[in-house]
Write a protein that binds this DNA or RNA. Structure first.
Length: 709
RNA sequence: GGGCGAUUAGCUCAGUUGGUAGAGCAGCGCAUUUACACUGCGAAGGUCGGGGGUUCAAAUCCCUCAUCGCCCACCA
């Protein structure tokens, strides 16, 4: 009995040793792979946010990408998998703010530099912690090329892109309505807001001769335009531009009548007043008719002096009822409907209502970028797994708005620009050389804002490869596969495609594979507050990384959410043990074999004459095809099924009567080595460990053995 | 208001060109001195959400309805 093969299999004993073996072999680095590896195959790892520890979703992406990389490496590709870590701007700042809150501190009371340094330390600590977690999941990525989103070289690339966009007239500084979060004190992109269904009171007020409806009385102070549809018969006696004197919240005002087709005649009374500073639709109407507008609510959610002494400084949440009361007392409240259902935008982090505000920000003109992106998809330069996601992508791209890339947070890449204090002009200034406004000659200051983290992440595939001059950029770009979660299709994937094509003239990746969410055993979304979050590292300690990986692969359809239960992982731990015992049996019964030459004529003849192997060959061909088609959930099940129910249950059982026959022994050994090779990308640790004991001539690390087809 | 997905064994889910339904777990019966009880063998369990259509043949294609879920959207 081979003393190494103690039953049961103990993953703890082998995983660290084998990872070290691989890492020290240098083969994670494409430049150090043997001669046969010529054609590049590249995956850029989606850099995990360095603000916590890995969750099940990370385990899934590491497993999927490592599977692809190991498969391609065995096939003889020059495989590069670039690991990285993301400073994750707003995301990390939110995490850190929560930490500060718990400690009774606030970022608004801190010196910006001090805050920045603290978050940097926090991020770097998390980063090194996470790197070890990625290692323990078996990731065969090239650590010598690891990147961090805040390193100088990356920032340099991001700045060059900012400049290029400006030079190409695709960047502008605009006073536009932005999504403002009063808690986080920053503007947010469309994607960083959620829409929630809410029931609010719906008020109808008497506004001169009109009745107007609103859910937000607190914004109505500045309303001096009343808008109706030009075709509305009810209001045909009133003309566009006509002035009307009327009594309003704080006394008499003069209102102007505006006719605009955006008005829905069927809604309410068909007349409404507008608050352009705090409402997107109103803003557009105001722009169309060149109306003036005023800010009513400040950036902290409090009413400004325009609300009058009675209301100034009051928080809008308390002011609402008071305003209604006042209007009611004045006899201007017509009616109150208790439950009006509508959709309200909230901050995706704190769920507080978004307060639209007009603010000067940097915007990217997206249309020219989306056109090229759509063309690339049309031509097939980028393929989506799955097709469904391609349709979702196209639809979004065809309806995209300009992209606000300014954020009022400290944690991120500073925007290299100057802003004129007099005229508000924004000037891109990479080398800090501009000293007065280029437009009016006025005084300037440095832009205090930072980039939306997705603006820099969107350049990740070429920035990590040292665009434009780097050796890696020339050797490995465009990359082959981008694998990431479908939840960041718009945030990240779309931006990578847009900016990748724009900056390099080529697509950033040829295939985009999207995985779904990992949910708990019952299909519930994992969340810290619910307490159903699984820690992948604990699971891999308990059942072995190979078992965890297998459970994340089998039956996990591309692009679809999956449920992960401990029972499922347990099942693959049993499978690992089964394989361990299969190997023990085969190796025990082939003790007399030594340095078997798989290339020899004798072996080849034996194999060709053996009918049991037809099924093996077919299985391996199928699995290869499945892997090429990104059907990992099928491939993993097939190799599982073959090893257990064909090799163990049938071939080994039937061999027991003729084990003294050397042909039988050779066949068993032959099948085992094929199985180990095929299974390696799925379950790298146990297969490498068994491989060490295989009596095969010219054996290499299983990591770089040839894929069996 | 649009778009998308799901509905298959008690539970969680696979099923890629249409050809007699699969896995894991749970449960049932039998088996234990030699690879493995983290096991083997056997049996049981589904009118593939409802209805209609195309076809020699539909879980698979088309239409429709129902329930659940997700995404997108500036109707006060």
């Amino acid at each position: 009995m081979n003393e190494k093969f103690l039953n049961p299999y103990d993953p703890q004993k082998t995983e660290k040793i084998n990872y070290k073996l691989w890492e020290e072999s240098g083969f994670f680095n494409p430049d150090k792979l043997p001669e046969r590896h010529q054609k590049p195959f590249t995956i850029i790892m989606p850099p995990p946010n360095a603000n916590g520890s890995l969750h099940a979703g990370h385990a899934l992406f590491v497993t999927l990408e490592d599977l692809m990389i190991r498969y391609k490496r065995m096939q003889g590709f020059k495989t590069l998998w670039v690991p990285g870590a993301d400073h994750a701007g707003f995301e990390t700042q939110v995490v850190y703010e929560k930490k500060l809150e718990k400690e009774g501190r606030s970022r608004f009371k801190m010196d910006p530099k001090e805050l920045y340094d603290e978050i940097m330390q926090f991020t770097l600590d998390n980063k090194s912690f996470m790197e070890n977690q990625v290692r323990s999941l078996g990731a065969s990525c090239d650590w010598s090329r690891e990147r961090f989103t805040l390193e100088p070289k990356i920032i340099e690339t991001v700045y060059e892109t900012f400049k290029k966009l400006s030079d190409d007239n695709l960047l502008y500084r605009g006073e536009k309505l932005v999504n403002w979060c009063s808690k986080h004190q920053t503007s947010l992109s469309e994607l960083e807001t959620d829409g929630v269904d809410k029931e609010d009171k719906f008020y109808t007020f008497q506004y001169g001769p009109f009745q107007i409806g609103t859910t937000r009385p607190e914004t109505k102070f500045g309303d001096k335009y009343v808008v109706m549809h030009p075709d509305d018969e009810r209001y045909k006696e009133y003309s566009h531009g006509q002035k009307i004197d009327l009594e309003w919240i704080n006394g008499p005002i003069t209102a102007t009548i505006i006719k605009d087709e955006a008005i829905d005649m069927k809604f309410g009374t068909g007349a409404m007043t507008i608050t352009p500073w705090h409402d997107t639709a109103d803003f557009e109407i105001a722009q169309r008719h060149n109306l003036d507008y005023e800010q009513i609510i400040d950036f902290y959610g409090k009413l400004l002096p325009i609300a009058g002494p009675e209301f100034e400084g009051k928080n809008i949440s308390v002011a609402r009822e008071e305003i209604v009361k006042k209007l009611d007392e004045k006899g201007l409240l017509v009616k109150t409907e208790e439950s009006f259902k509508h959709n309200v935008k909230v901050c995706y982090k704190c769920n507080r209502p978004i307060e639209p505000q007009i603010k000067a920000q940097w915007f990217i003109k997206t249309e020219p970028l989306t056109q090229k992106a759509l063309e690339a998809v049309e031509k097939g330069d980028i393929k989506f797994v799955t097709e469904r996601h391609e349709r979702i992508f196209r639809h979004w791209m065809e309806n995209i708005h300009d992209w606000n890339i300014s954020r009022q947070i400290i944690w991120g890449i500073p925007i290299p620009a100057k802003i004129c204090l007099d005229c508000g002009e924004g000037m891109v200034d990479l080398d800090d050389s501009i000293s007065k406004c280029s437009k009016c000659g006025g005084k300037i200051e440095k832009d205090k804002d930072t980039f939306d983290t997705w603006f820099s992440s969107g350049q990740w595939p070429f920035a990590t490869l040292n665009f434009p001059e780097g050796k890696d950029f020339k050797g490995f770009y465009p990359t082959d596969v981008m694998e990431t979660g479908h939840d960041i299709l718009f945030f990240w994937v779309a931006r990578m495609i847009m900016l990748g094509i724009y900056c390099t003239g080529e697509v950033p990746f040829k295939t985009i594979y999207l995985h779904g969410l990992v949910r708990d055993a019952k299909g519930k979304k994992m969340s810290k507050s619910v307490g159903n979050v699984v820690n992948p590292l604990e699971l891999s300690d308990k059942y072995g990384t190979d078992a965890l990986r297998m459970s994340l692969l089998v039956g996990n359809t591309p692009g679809t959410d999956m449920n992960l239960s401990e029972d499922k992982i347990k099942a693959y731990k049993k499978f690992a043990n089964k394989l361990w015992n299969i190997s023990r049996f085969v190796l025990d019964n082939t003790k007399d074999l030594n340095e078997v030459d798989l290339e020899s004529e004798d072996i080849k003849k034996l194999i060709n004459s053996n009918s049991e192997l037809i099924n093996l060959e077919k299985t391996i061909t199928d699995i290869t095809k499945d892997l090429d088609n990104f059907q990992f959930h099928i491939a993993s099940e097939k190799i599982y099924h073959y090893i257990w129910h064909e090799f163990a249950d049938k071939i080994i059982e039937e061999s027991k009567e003729k084990l003294d026959n050397s042909e039988t022994q050779l066949i068993l050994l032959y099948i085992l080595q094929i199985c180990l090779k095929t299974l390696h990308p799925f379950m790298p640790f146990i297969t490498e460990e068994i491989w060490k004991s295989m009596p095969i001539k010219n054996k290499k690390l299983l990591l770089i053995e040839e894929w069996p087809v």
